[in-house]
Nucleic acid binder design. Structure first.
Lengths: 199, 199
DNA sequence: ACCTGAACACCGTTCAAGT
DNA sequence: ACCTGAACACCGTTCAAGT
């Protein structure tokens, strides 16, 4: 696995560029990410990335897609290990969501920004839909268990999704002031569940 | 006020650049906004903006600050014309917030992104705080009226703020699917008020 | 099949010089 | 006080040529 000596063919250029790209994303931000800089870091000429990514946007799209895959896996894992109680499940989901998004602020922003760009690969929108489907399923389960009011589950899931996404925005934009994120997130879920509960 | 003939001194360069900048922001996005392009549009040399904005970021900061001022004014106006009923007031606030943010997607993103950048002018953070203070005041009023549970109003206001910011993110990232935004926003406020109400 | 090197058209930023 | 023009160091992208 050691690749200290680099012959003409890098052998692993695509993955190396993605790894360097994700580092650069969180340190300098998507706007300042430079393809030439990544090539330098990885030790190839500035034109070499072209073989693997048609342009800068293609590399950003690949980073976003990769992010969605890990994001979805983390949400699935949280639910799979969460037990059966509805409140516990939705708390587990919220913690996984907020945890992923606040440890990778630039990536989560890129993920949702790339998704709807003109010419974005359809896999991106599909991956985002799969992540949203997890939240939808939880709402449907909650309705079946009588813990959530009846009504369009898509709408209720979008409200829940908005709340989580907003908490992430507050945390990542440094608007928490002195609020600890964990307590704020759990309090938000508590209020949401009360608002979703039948009277 | 006509300035068709442009002598050596533009006379209004700062405002002209800001106006062109806000147009460019919404059409091409902050990442693709080019200072040289703005100078061309406005009819000055590429170095002229330097007199009014130290660098590209300074122009973006000025756009964000201007945005926060209009945003705050719109929120204030919505509350001033909203009557006294708590539910009505919070609905008016939500409509003003979501309305402003979804008609200027790139600006609202820039506003919250610029706010916490290293070296950002302190006026930005202050303007953001003033906008948040509006939401906080509504929560405090709701508690006084007995429509909102007691407890840290900062925390409750942040939850309300997160919900609105998340709705904006969903709308601006094209995740509404077939949900009409107005109905989703009003339903979200309804659920929030139920979750905030004393039992 | 994968990478290099030169070339092109763009940037942001700086600074002496012009009005 | 405000703006221009040349210059510099960077980009992303393209393409013939190398291995």
């Amino acid at each position: 696995m050691s690749a200290t000596a680099r012959p003409y063919h890098h052998g692993n250029l695509r993955e190396a560029l993605l790894a360097a790209g994700e580092r650069a994303l969180e340190t300098t931000g998507a706007a300042n990410l430079s393809l030439r800089e990544l090539a330098r870091e990885v030790g190839v000429s500035h034109a070499a990335p072209r073989r693997h990514f048609a342009d800068r946007q293609a590399l950003l799209d690949a980073l976003a897609l990769n992010g969605f895959e890990r994001f979805g896996a983390q949400l699935d894992h949280a639910l799979a290990t969460a037990g059966e109680d509805f409140t516990t499940r939705i708390l587990a989901l919220a913690r996984a969501y907020v945890g992923f998004a606040t440890t990778r602020p630039a990536l989560i922003e890129l993920m949702f920004a790339s998704k709807h760009q003109a010419g974005a690969p359809p896999e991106l929108a599909q991956a985002a839909d799969r992540a949203f489907a997890v939240a939808l399923a939880v709402v449907v389960d909650g309705q079946a268990a009588g813990a959530v009011v009846p009504g369009d589950p898509e709408r209720l899931a979008k409200i829940a999704f908005a709340l989580l996404q907003g908490l992430v925005a507050i945390a990542n934009n440094h608007m928490l002031d002195d609020q600890p994120l964990d307590a704020l997130r759990d309090a938000a879920v508590e209020r949401l569940l009360l608002g979703f509960a039948p009277r």
